[in-house]
Design a protein around this nucleic acid. Structure first.
Lengths: 165, 165
DNA sequence: ATCCGATAACTCGATATCAAGATACTTGAC
DNA sequence: GTCAAGTATCTTGATATCGAGTTATCGGAT
């Protein structure tokens, strides 16, 4: 089945036949799919009274395991936002009672963000809902295709995830 | 090579062994890669004095071919933003002299957005830069792998692109 | 001919994001 | 021990986005 990127690529080949636009076949699809997923997630989470950004932070802490705490810096690398954004996110989650800020005992510059019990429950509930939704989206593909797709994507993400940048 | 999603999935399997988190192998990678691409694009475009959102709108018009005009509604489906956002984007691009608004002769509710000559040149320059950058990112993969990846992604995007939603 | 549900674009208020810079602390070289 | 460079977090101001609601127009059914 054709998608919007097929139309986009065909249009470029008509308008700019001098250019090789093959990269768009992969990377424009990645960007557009991410946007569609964002919208779908926003809907799924609204049933649990969470925003996507809240989910991202809460689940990062949930994954850390007991006592469910990480520094803002560790949260940055997991969520790919700027430090100013993270400060703001922590403020708002703390105001809602889903996390709390603690001083880092081993570094007086540092802070530890800890999940509250309610934060943990909300994260667990929202995760179950998200997985259900994602399974439905991925039903388009066989198990073998999903593995193949994951492996190919890993090759593209690994360079980004393993350099200072 | 391992990436951040490998670590994320391993953490979930440790913390929630009762859940099947396989969907994250694909969809978390898509979201994270899109965010990395966003950052890389922001950098690439800043050399041309453009923001990613400006590029998205200008190139949609550029692809339409002469006379380089589309309705705001057509721009919506290509850029996946809300109508309020698009109105705002057109305002700002018009103020910069990169597009102009014309009344739609066949529908008095409608508007046509047309690329100016400068807008066209800026779009063309930024596109060349973007393709160069994207080719570098995709150099990780063989041509066959890129085709395979594009085909798998198309299967996921097509349902989103071909329904009213 | 008229009505009424759809459609196109816009307005407005709330809010999340970023970039750049400030502050406080730490670490390693000497 | 001291100092400089590095690091962790926070602050600030500008800006882009969204969602919900508004206005004007269209088009089909009667």
């Amino acid at each position: 089945m054709e998608d919007e990127v097929d139309r986009l690529v065909a249009a470029w080949r008509r308008e700019r036949p001098d250019l090789d636009v093959e990269p768009l076949e992969v990377l424009s699809r990645v960007s557009r799919l991410a946007r569609h997923l964002d919208r779908a997630r926003r809907l799924a989470f609204s049933e649990h009274g969470l925003e996507p950004w809240e989910f991202d932070v809460l689940t990062a802490l949930r994954r850390a395991g007991t006592p469910y705490q990480l520094s803002p810096g560790q949260l940055l690398t997991q969520t790919l936002v700027t430090s100013g954004t993270m400060t703001n996110r922590i403020d708002r989650l703390a105001k809602k009672g889903l996390v709390e800020r603690l001083p880092d005992p081993s570094d007086r510059r540092g802070v530890l963000v800890r999940l509250t019990d309610e934060g943990r429950d909300r994260a667990d509930q929202a995760l179950a809902g998200l997985l259900e939704q994602e399974r439905a989206i991925l039903a388009e593909l066989s198990h073998a295709q999903r593995s193949e797709l994951a492996a190919l994507l890993r090759q593209l993400t690994a360079p980004f995830d393993n350099v200072p940048g």
